[in-house]
């Protein structure tokens, strides 16, 4: 098994300090967005995808597991949150909880099945499982098939924050994103994260050292899936709908693309990648299917010439982990 990244740098106090400085700058910049005149809807959407990509990156970048079905968590959590908000008329916090809980359960089941095979088979299994769910949601009555769940009420978070106001919603989404991001950062730098990295580098050796690698991989899968579900629940408030697009394999592919562009196994890469890809989709929306062609071309170019991704290249240049 060849390593994913050729320059894994040790986690030092200095590296962590650098990363926290970058984090604070990013957080401040994002917090300033409503004062800049940038369209907040675009940033909110990008933040949801950034969280999704970060969750995906936890699995591929640190566990070496390429999931080609992460849309299933996004879509499942989205449908469950949307259903809870609209049909059960639950308040936003419980709606989010419903979606995250659904993604949690789903990730236990799918994780248990898919970690039974390694490498390339793992990718094919996750893809097949998400396609299975796609067909289930296509036929299930509560998802309203092709129409999706539309006109979802946003409500008041904790009875105080009016989520129908764009600025309030923006800060709620931002706090959600930052919380998820910090949680992932904490996981990566925990002893658990270190074991995960050792499995990525050499699973046989990790087993011989006495680690039950399957349990680590399963836990990583559950964490990743649940956080991806959290992103899906947040997205429901932004888009106010939940549709089949979010469960489709092309969505799983987009998440992979975002992470690849930003840099597999980098901390900030998925965030950068998500903003790049979402911005590209916005600007090229009028070109129809050419967007798909361009996305494919980016895949090809990244794999052939640019495997470190944007953040990975910067980190490599400065010899820092970012």
């Amino acid at each position: 098994m060849t390593a994913l990244t050729d320059d894994t740098l040790p986690v030092t106090a200095r590296a962590m300090r650098d990363e926290m400085i970058v984090f604070v700058f990013v957080a401040l910049a994002l917090a300033a967005v409503p004062f800049t005149g940038i369209y907040p809807f675009f940033v909110m959407q990008a933040l949801c995808f950034a969280l999704l990509a970060c969750a995906f990156n936890l699995l591929i970048g640190y566990g070496g597991l390429l999931s080609f079905g992460h849309a299933m968590f996004l879509g499942t959590a989205g449908y469950c949150s949307a259903h809870a908000l609209k049909v059960w008329a639950l308040p936003p916090e419980l709606g989010i909880l419903a979606g995250v809980a659904a993604a949690f359960v789903l990730s236990i089941v799918t994780g248990y099945i898919s970690i039974r095979r390694q490498g390339i088979y793992f990718s094919m299994i996750t893809l097949a499982l998400s396609q299975l769910l796609y067909f289930i949601y296509l036929q299930a009555p509560f998802t309203h098939g092709e129409d999706g769940i539309q006109g979802i009420p946003q409500g008041h978070l904790f009875g105080i924050f009016d989520l129908s106001k764009p600025t309030v919603l923006y800060y709620v989404v931002l706090v959600g994103f930052l919380a998820g991001f910090l949680l992932i950062y904490r996981i990566i730098n925990s002893p658990f994260g270190e074991v995960l990295k050792s499995i990525r580098e050499n699973e046989q050796r990790a087993i011989s050292l006495g680690y039950r690698t399957d349990q680590y991989k399963l836990l990583a899968f559950i964490l990743s899936g649940t956080l991806a579900g959290f992103a899906g629940s947040l997205k429901v408030f932004v888009a106010q709908n939940a549709s089949l697009t979010d469960v489709h394999w092309s969505m799983s592919g987009e998440v992979v693309l975002m992470t690849l562009v930003g840099g597999l196994g980098t901390i900030f890469g998925p965030v950068v990648g998500a903003f790049v890809i979402i911005a590209m989709q916005q600007y090229l929306a009028s070109y129809g299917q050419w967007v798909t062609v361009i996305q494919g071309a980016i895949f090809v170019i990244c794999v052939l010439t640019f495997r470190r991704g944007v953040v990975g290249e910067i980190a490599h240049y400065f010899r820092r982990s970012l």
Binding site: M1, F68, G119, S123, G253, T292, F299, V300, C302, V303
Partner: peptide, 27 residues
């Protein structure tokens, strides 16, 4: 050019090729 790299890069590259080919025909 992918010889010696992790399997997953082959999957990603051919996925990109599939998107290109299908996108061109769809256009």
């Amino acid at each position: 050019w992918l010889t010696g790299l992790d399997h997953l890069y082959g999957l990603l590259l051919t996925f990109g090729l599939a998107l290109i080919i299908q996108g061109v025909f769809q256009n």
